[in-house]
Design a binder for these strands. Structure first.
Length: 743
DNA sequence: ATAGGGTTAG
């Protein structure tokens, strides 16, 4: 059959030309029918099946060999590897060696990939030995695969890979964002050398890599040796090394390699770019990131999904979410990772609603969410305290079998805690097999937000006992807990331990917690000294905690001193003007109070309207302070009025201190009643039967008297009112508030 | 044979 012969001939020449399973099967059948089967043909058939990743068919052919040829072994090993059966792949390799066959250069890439995937250094190194003995270490593909294996081993941190800098926190001023990598080690230069280089020029050094700390990166050292020994290097060689360096925090060398590959006459491609873009994301360096973007556009690479998601992420980490959106919508096709990048970008920049919207769009576009999707979107639910949404996602997570993922579990702990459900948060935490530092911190912070300082502290202690090292954030959490409970001594011990035992430099949050505690305890001078001796410039808000304490303890002179500092540091801090003016008023210095009020008016300062919201029957109801537009506004106010009267009959005195002093008594009551928290609570009361748990899902602000109000309401109406975040509450002891007011 | 996205923060 002549047609048969042509097909067989073409198969023999190009086994990869067969594109589909049915085509392959037809051909296989024809060959069997023609009865011209010989071993060379069988080699071609197994290659064909192996190239199509058809493991069962490959095995069927393979097992029919009495003594498989090199090609057959290669095919079956490759097929095992590409089907993720790494162990079988290595076992086959061992069988092949036992059968006395000498592997050729085609076999090693698959074998090495299996070693890398199994994170098995021992086998990997002995395979490397085998490669050297066979003199195949000069083979391009084998060398590339070797480098890839060592990169992966280093990456998985067998010896504690340095995952250098944590990403800078978001939402910081643009001017503070740019950070050079090791000073002046790279810069952009228009007269750059190389093949249309993107301008990354390393000023010094010709050796690769210039200097790697071999102690910390033994595997990268092996990569270097392989790379240096290669007689010929292609794009893949360079890209492998660049990715390995970039992923292991050796940013400087990674960028230098980009330049060197251009010098070697190779153009950085989409692989190179998507490896180095995360560096600029980490260093929050949008101008360098844009440079890469420009290069990508000039080379028609900007529509690549990989570059697209790196760009989305880079712009988002540089707080340029609008650019992320632009890149996202310009992508011709979007995969799960592109969606994850834009969703995470929104959430990380505080655009929670936008993140949720995109998440829904992702589902509608029939893109299956991956584990990363959930850990990216969950913080949106946590911040919006939308328990309903969070629970739905939790259900989705369980159905997707993702609930054992640390990232997801930690975000769930945080979400439930922030939504007021501390017990479920704890339940999830307890179910975690190996909680990491972030999981512990989420739980510790959860207890802190719920005012359970002792649970918080004992958990912190437990974490230390389990040798989980607390970081900056963990100390913020535990100090917050101390601050709520007035545990000043404990806080000071922790503060010192943070510096001495863990080498963590205290930041604003830590200082603020201590200053707040000292202030509450009435140790005002000490607080003043403490803030003055901070090694970083205190912000207005740190001083403001002290100003609050001054008001409580009626220290007008100190308050004046502090207020001056605040007005200097943060002239727009409206709260402090009000506070200071109230302090003057409370001590009878009316003219000083009036002066400040005039200053405020002159500055045209307006307080951002407060907003609170509450979830009732799976619906979210938001209230702005003083906003009367809600359809139930009158009913809410009526309910609150009845309650306030009842509360007053039971001995409750509304604290009107913080309300501006020149308003009428009636109006004061009105203002109190139109506090957004009150509206939210009131709405909860009128729309639920007694005995319902009401969750107030927004911080209760400053002193006012919301805490007392909530207490009374829960007592009177018989509802359990759960308030999220008691950090602004005053602490009560023996009927006395820590602010010094009696109730 | 090479690449991209994730959790905690007064």
């Amino acid at each position: 059959m002549s047609s048969n012969r042509t097909i067989v001939k073409s198969l023999l020449q190009k086994p990869a030309s067969i594109k589909s399973k049915s085509q392959a099967k037809q051909l296989h059948a024809q060959i069997i029918k023609s009865k011209g089967v010989h071993s060379g043909l069988m080699d071609s058939i197994i290659s064909m099946y192996s190239n199509l990743n058809l493991l069962q068919d490959s095995l069927l052919v393979f097992n029919s060999f009495p003594s498989p040829s090199i090609v057959a072994w290669k095919s079956i090993i490759k097929c095992y590897t590409s089907n993720g059966l790494f162990l079988q792949s290595l076992l086959s390799f061992v069988d092949m060696r036992a059968s006395g066959k000498y592997p050729d250069h085609n076999i090693f890439p698959s074998v090495l990939k299996s070693c890398a995937s199994l994170i098995n250094l021992k086998v990997g190194e002995s395979v490397h030995g085998c490669i050297i003995r066979l003199g195949l270490d000069f083979d391009l593909y084998t060398g590339n695969a070797l480098m890839n294996m060592y990169c992966k081993l280093q990456n998985l941190g067998e010896v504690g890979a340095p995952r250098s800098h944590a990403a800078l926190s978001y939402k910081i001023p643009e001017s503070m964002c740019s950070k050079s990598i090791n000073g002046t080690c790279y810069e952009f230069n228009k007269q750059n050398v190389g093949v249309d280089s993107m301008g990354i020029l390393a000023p010094t050094g010709n050796e690769f890599p210039q200097r790697i700390e071999t102690q910390k990166t033994p595997f990268l050292e092996s990569v270097r040796k392989v790379f240096d020994g290669m007689p010929k290097r292609d794009l893949v060689s360079w890209n492998t090394v660049i990715a390995g360096l970039a992923q292991n925090g050796i940013h400087r060398e990674a960028l230098m390699m980009i330049k060197k590959m251009a010098d070697a006459g190779l153009k950085p491609d989409s692989f190179s770019l998507s490896s180095i873009l995360p560096i600029f994301a980490e260093y929050v360096d949008v101008s360098k990131g844009k440079e890469i973007h420009g290069y990508a556009i000039r080379h028609g690479l900007d529509t690549d999904v990989f570059i697209g998601s790196s760009l989305i992420d880079m712009y988002a980490k540089c707080t340029r979410v609008d650019n992320s959106h632009r890149v996202f919508f310009l992508l011709p096709q979007r995969d799960a990772i592109s969606w994850n990048s834009i969703i995470a970008g929104c959430v990380q920049n505080g655009l929670f609603d936008e993140g949720l919207k995109l998440f829904r769009q992702m589902l509608m576009a029939n893109i299956k969410p991956r584990h990363v999707t959930f850990s990216s979107i969950m913080p949106a639910c946590a911040h919006l305290t939308t328990l309903h949404m969070g629970k739905q996602l939790h259900g989705y997570i369980i159905r997707s079998l993702f609930d054992d993922n640390v990232f997801i579990a930690s975000s769930l702990v945080d979400m439930y805690a922030k939504c007021g459900n501390i017990r479920i948060a704890r339940w999830i935490f307890d179910k975690m097999e190996s909680p990491d530092m972030v999981s512990w911190t989420a739980m510790i912070m959860g207890y802190a937000l719920h005012g359970c300082a002792h649970d918080s502290l004992s958990l912190f202690q437990q974490m230390e006992m389990e040798n989980v090292k607390p970081n900056y954030v963990a100390f913020v959490a535990v100090l917050t807990a101390c601050s709520h409970a007035g545990l000043i001594d404990k806080a000071l011990i922790l503060f010192n331990s943070m510096k001495q035992d863990y080498g963590i430099t205290p930041g604003l949050e830590h200082y603020a917690a201590i200053a707040d505690l000292l202030g509450r305890a009435g140790r005002l001078e000490e607080a003043y000294e403490f803030i003055s001796s901070m090694h970083i410039e205190p912000t207005g808000s740190v001083w403001a905690t002290l100003l609050g304490a001054c008001r409580v303890h009626k220290k007008v002179e100190l308050a004046e001193n502090v207020a001056t500092k605040i007005f200097e540091l943060d002239p727009e801090n409206m709260g402090s003007y009000v506070l200071m003016s109230n302090i003057y008023a409370a001590s009878g210095r009316w003219s000083d109070a009036a002066k400040l009020r005039i200053t405020m008016k002159g500055k045209g300062m307006k307080k951002k309207p407060a907003c609170s919201w509450i979830e009732v029957k799976n619906k979210l109801h938001a209230f702005m302070a003083g906003d009367k537009s809600h359809p139930y506004y009158d009913r809410i106010n009526e309910a609150m009025k009845v309650l306030l009267e009842q509360m007053e009959r039971e001995g409750y005195v509304p604290n009107t201190d913080d309300v501006l002093h020149d308003v009428e008594e009636e109006q004061k009551r009105y203002i109190l009643c139109s506090h957004s928290e009150r509206l939210a609570i009131g709405f909860g009361i009128i729309s639920t039967p007694p005995g319902t748990t009401i969750r107030v899902t927004k911080n209760l602000r400053v002193c006012v008297d919301c805490h007392i109000a909530t207490k009374f309401i829960s007592k009177i109406v018989g509802r359990e009112i759960i308030v999220r975040d008691v950090s602004r509450f005053h602490h009560f002891k023996d009927g006395k508030c820590s602010c010094g007011d009696y109730w």
